[in-house]
Simulated assay, not measured.
Amino acid sequence: MQDEFEEWKKALPMPKGGSKADAARQLRDSVRVFTFGFRDWLEETMRPQGMTLPQLRMLFAVRYGKDASSAKIARLCQVTPQTLQAMLQRAVREGWLVRQPAKHNARILVSALTPKGDALLQQAVAATTAFELQVWRDATVAELQAMNAAFTRATQRIAQIEAMPAARPRKRGGKPKSVAKL
């Protein structure tokens, strides 16, 4: 992964110092490389169990999205409803999930983890925790907390921006809208 990061830095120069915009771009690019590296590692870790990352996200969505409909799980997993249906069928076949009618509406099927599905999630969490401790071994708790605070603020700002009508993509041929400052 270090070689890939070095290639990335050559392709997109990351200036030292500079403006807030330069620092933000540098952070964005570092986060992108980190995220890709983490995803690659997690996929390799879960591959022997016959699991992909979208399937793992699906299991997490089922665990934490109590009585979540398929449509909600698809949104959480960032897949189409059709793709999710295939994923759910496989998960039931593999014994990771069971599906049953929702208590509030018998026409809606909700999913629940089986002990086998829960064990897969626990394995992924344990592996991820060990990986994170290794990756962040040189960072202090204060540094990690500061990064978390910064990302939390950024996530809140993204939600604010997305809620603004001017931030929504415009239709082809439509007039450009002014972008509001926050």
Rank of each mutant, 00 (worst) to 15 (best):
A24F: 14
A24L: 12
A24R: 15
R25P: 02
D29C: 09
S30A: 12
R32H: 15
V33Q: 13
F34I: 08
G37H: 14
F38K: 14
F38P: 09
R39S: 09
W41G: 06
W41D: 07
L42D: 03
L42Y: 05
L42A: 14
L42E: 11
E43F: 09
M46D: 11
R47I: 10
P48L: 05
Q49I: 07
G50H: 06
M51K: 02
L53P: 13
Q55T: 06
Q55I: 01
Q55F: 00
Q55M: 15
L56H: 07
L56V: 10
R57H: 04
A61I: 01
V62F: 00
Y64E: 02
G65S: 01
G65I: 00
K66R: 13
K66C: 04
D67P: 03
D67V: 00
A68M: 07
A71I: 05
A71N: 04
L76F: 00
L76I: 01
L76Q: 02
Q78Y: 01
Q78H: 13
V79D: 00
V79N: 00
V79K: 00
T80R: 13
P81A: 10
Q82P: 03
Q82A: 08
T83F: 02
L84G: 02
L84K: 02
Q85R: 10
Q85N: 15
A86M: 06
A86G: 10
L88T: 12
L88V: 08
L88R: 05
Q89R: 15
R90V: 06
R90W: 08
R90Y: 07
R93W: 12
E94R: 15
G95C: 12
W96K: 04
W96C: 08
L97I: 03
V98H: 08
R99S: 07
Q100N: 06
P101W: 07
K103C: 05
H104M: 04
N105M: 01
I108K: 08
L109Q: 15
V110C: 01
S111I: 00
S111M: 02
S111E: 03
S111D: 00
A112Q: 15
T114I: 04
P115E: 13
P115C: 02
K116P: 00
G117H: 03
G117L: 03
G117V: 05
A119E: 14
A119R: 13
Q122E: 11
Q123R: 12
V125A: 03
A127H: 02
A127W: 01
T128A: 08
T128D: 04
T129R: 14
T129M: 13
Q134V: 07
V135W: 09
W136V: 13
R137Q: 12
R137H: 05
D138C: 05
D138E: 09
T140F: 03
V141H: 04
V141I: 06
V141K: 09
A142I: 05
A142T: 04
E143I: 07
L144K: 15
L144S: 05
Q145H: 01
Q145F: 01
M147T: 11
N148W: 11
N148L: 10
N148C: 09
A150D: 12
A150C: 08
F151V: 15
R153Y: 09
A154V: 07
A154N: 03
A154R: 13
Q156A: 13
R157E: 11
A159C: 06
Q160P: 09
Q160M: 09
I161N: 11
I161S: 14
E162N: 11
